[in-house]
Amino acid sequence: MEALGMEIMKTEKQLVEIKMPVDHRTKQPMGFLHGGASVALAESAASIGALLQVNPNESRIFGIEINANHIKSKRDGWVIGRATPVHIGKRTMVWEINIVDEQDVLISISRCTIGVVPIAK
């Protein structure tokens, strides 16, 4: 997260928000926000949200699957990833992550499945 300049804005069980700059760290060679950076933002937000749902002394969380649809391009400024839970289960979770710009315009949408693995005792 640090390498891409991500900053955590909000951490609640039902909403995690992380902002990320659109700069030299997060752009693809043509100068637009890199889809991979958007996916890293999405999975980071989902993972933090999932961690808030479990006792970290008893379980670990791992990303199992993520997909993304990139709706709009962005050349500069900031994007904000907003993760909300769709399903909170005992062994899996599904999170929806909307990435928006400063004007709340949708840039990308992702769905991330998280696995919950008990720590071996």
Rank of each mutant, 00 (worst) to 15 (best):
V54K: 06
C112M: 13
E17L: 08
R91V: 02
I71T: 14
V86P: 01
K13N: 12
F62A: 13
L41I: 03
K13C: 10
I66A: 14
F62H: 09
T92Q: 13
V22W: 02
R82Y: 12
R75Q: 12
G115K: 03
G77Q: 06
K10C: 06
P85K: 05
R25D: 06
G81C: 09
L106D: 09
P29D: 13
I107K: 01
V94G: 03
A83M: 01
V39Q: 04
E96K: 14
I66N: 07
R60C: 07
D76G: 07
G31H: 12
T113E: 12
G35F: 00
M30D: 15
E65I: 07
G63W: 12
L52G: 02
M30K: 15
I18E: 01
P56N: 09
S38A: 13
I80Y: 07
Q53K: 04
P29I: 15
G77V: 06
Q28F: 06
V39S: 07
Q14R: 11
S44H: 07
V54Y: 08
K90Q: 04
I64G: 09
V16K: 03
I88D: 04
S108F: 01
S47V: 05
M93V: 01
V54N: 05
K27M: 14
R111G: 05
A40H: 08
V94Y: 05
L41T: 00
L41Q: 03
R25I: 00
D104M: 14
I64T: 05
I48D: 01
G5P: 04
T11Y: 05
S59T: 11
K74D: 03
E58M: 14
L52E: 00
G31D: 14
L52A: 12
H24R: 13
E102N: 13
M9D: 01
L106S: 08
I48V: 09
L51A: 09
F32Q: 14
K13M: 10
H34W: 12
R75T: 12
S47T: 10
A83R: 00
D23I: 07
E102W: 13
V54G: 05
T113Y: 09
Q14H: 15
G49R: 01
R60Y: 09
M6Q: 00
K13L: 10
K13W: 13
L106K: 08
P85R: 05
G115D: 03
L51F: 14
E65Y: 07
E96H: 08
I114T: 03
V100C: 02
P21R: 06
Q28G: 13
A46Y: 06
N98S: 10
S59R: 13
